[in-house]
């Protein structure tokens, strides 16, 4: 029982961490290898805001998200979208280059030391269903679920969300109804980066971030997204919880050292059995 609660709460954080990656893959059909760096940047920018402005890190994560999102917009618009016409490998390679650039800049500016965000609730505990649980993880789960709901509603109800769905469903036809594809793609990456930045702040609040931490989180996010199904907000939540559970239970059963092996093993198995993801509906041809 305890394991299950822990797994689910961890899954909430994972969903937040993976949401942006899922959105980008689902709409732009692009593998973003710089996703982890959006997370890390979120942690660092929030930390800078806390240092310079003071205040609650969770509140300051919102302007941080806007800043990271604003950085991501031109990246898609002027680098990645033009590359998509050339081949599928070109944008992948470019996002890899971007990830190295961000990592190196962070290393040069902030050194390799880990950075944390602090708040009264950063290292406290609450009782959930009789199980003691880190407050930050609970917050992360609440925020994760909230983000999933907000994103889901945005995609379903808002005009922008519909334009995004239209662009994902049929990019050519989207142009026919007056949707600016380049702008929409750039907005999608910006939103994905902003959501990831909030995820990064939660990581820094729960654990810590360092310049090279992005790679590890990217892989976790990949696992979540692949298991949950690419491009579905609700699937991402389900995927996050699945990964959280697999991880917690694998650690308990086989020992913590086999946690990663179990998670990546699950990734490979899911890829082979259902490349479209466990929780995704099979797309009609």
């Amino acid at each position: 029982m305890e394991l299950v609660v822990q797994g689910i709460l961890l899954g909430g954080l994972y969903a937040t961490v993976a949401l942006g990656l899922s959105l980008v893959f689902g709409v732009i059909k692009m593998v973003n290898l710089a996703h982890g760096e959006f997370l890390v940047l979120g942690g660092y920018v929030t930390s800078l805001l806390v240092v310079s402005l003071g205040g609650d890190p969770l509140l300051l994560a919102i302007p941080a998200a806007l800043i990271v999102g604003a950085l991501a917009y031109p990246l898609q618009r002027y680098l990645l979208t033009p590359l998509m016409r050339h081949s599928t490998e070109a944008p992948i390679t470019a996002t890899f280059g971007v990830s190295v650039v961000v990592q190196t800049v962070l290393l040069l500016v902030f050194t390799a030391d880990p950075r944390t965000l602090n708040a009264p609730y950063a290292a406290s505990q609450v009782e959930v269903l009789g199980v003691g649980m880190r407050t930050t993880l609970l917050i992360a789960t609440v925020i994760g679920v909230a983000l999933v709901i907000v994103l889901d509603l945005t995609l379903r109800r808002s005009r922008f969300g519909r334009q995004v769905r239209a662009a994902a469903f049929d990019p050519d036809a989207a142009g026919l109804v007056g949707i600016d594809l380049k702008h929409t793609y750039a907005m999608v990456l910006a939103v994905a980066a902003a959501v990831s930045a909030i995820g990064g702040a939660l990581i820094a609040l729960s654990f810590s971030v360092d310049p090279v931490a992005g790679t590890g989180w990217l892989l976790r996010a990949f696992t979540v997204v692949v298991i949950g199904g690419l491009g579905s907000a609700r699937g991402t939540l389900a995927g996050g919880i699945t990964v959280g559970l697999v991880e917690t239970i694998a650690a308990a059963v086989f020992g913590a050292q086999y946690r990663d092996v179990a998670v990546f093993g699950a990734l490979v198995v899911v890829l082979l059995l259902r490349p479209q993801g466990l929780f995704a509906k099979v797309q009609r041809a």
Partner: peptide, 24 residues
Amino acid sequence: RSAHQRVRAGIALVPEGRRLFGDM
């Protein structure tokens, strides 16, 4: 101009095969 700009300028197309957004 690109397609979306022409739509805004006032040229619209009902495409062959309709190209609706089927899941909406």
